[in-house]
Simulated assay, not measured.
Amino acid sequence: MATRAERTPQWTTTVIISTSLWQHEASRMLSAQRHRVRFSDSVQSGAFIFPLSGTAFLLLEPGDVPGRVEESGLTEKIKTFVQVHRNSFLILYAPFNGTKELEMLSEIQHRFLGSNLRILPVRNNAEIVKGMLTIAMATSKPHADLIHDRLSLARADIIESSPVWEMLRDISDSVDFD
């Protein structure tokens, strides 16, 4: 008997990747999974863009940032990324959660609190790819519609079978509004 993974065709999409990442393991993993990978010089350095879902990811490795976030020019790079991409994610690649990584995460969160930037901390390349693909698939048109439909059905089922809603219906039926 086939498992669910064997019956479900693998989801594939187009990914535009900064040429600065053409040697990165995450790029190779996306290609190996048969996604249509395109490299571009016009994309911000360190970026992965999923055009069909409208999401963009900026890969940040704490080892590449000398000193504090504000002093390194990283804030301006992230600010530009957030302004260009409305559905933006910062992938903070930190294989070991040391004090430098935690301080950097805290500074970035504090600086971009209230913006549309979401931060995704990851520990390895497999988590980078899995996180990006999960978010991109959930926000792509056919999958987003399917998720919305399932949530609507779940909500309707909860309302139908909830004892609280049943009690409220009974109360409203027994109250005379005239």
Rank of each mutant, 00 (worst) to 15 (best):
M1Y: 11
D176S: 12
L30P: 03
K130W: 11
V82Q: 09
L90G: 08
A138G: 04
F50Q: 10
V65L: 12
V122L: 08
D173T: 09
L21W: 02
D170T: 12
D173E: 12
A154Y: 06
N87D: 15
F89L: 14
Q33Y: 07
L105Y: 15
G114T: 08
L92T: 00
S45D: 13
T75M: 05
V43R: 10
T12W: 00
L153R: 14
L30C: 02
V129R: 04
A126K: 12
E70D: 11
H148V: 09
W11L: 06
H85C: 06
E103P: 05
F89W: 15
S162V: 01
N116T: 15
E71H: 11
V122R: 07
S27K: 01
G114A: 08
T75N: 02
D176N: 11
G114P: 08
T12Y: 02
E160M: 12
I78E: 06
G67H: 04
L21R: 02
D157L: 13
R4C: 08
A47E: 12
M29I: 13
W11A: 02
F39N: 06
S152N: 13
F39M: 09
T99I: 14
E166I: 00
M167W: 07
A2D: 15
I159M: 09
V69A: 15
E6A: 15
G98N: 10
L58I: 00
V164T: 09
E61M: 11
K130C: 07
L168G: 05
E166W: 00
N125S: 15
G131H: 02
L92N: 00
I78L: 08
R150Y: 06
S72C: 03
D157T: 14
K130I: 12
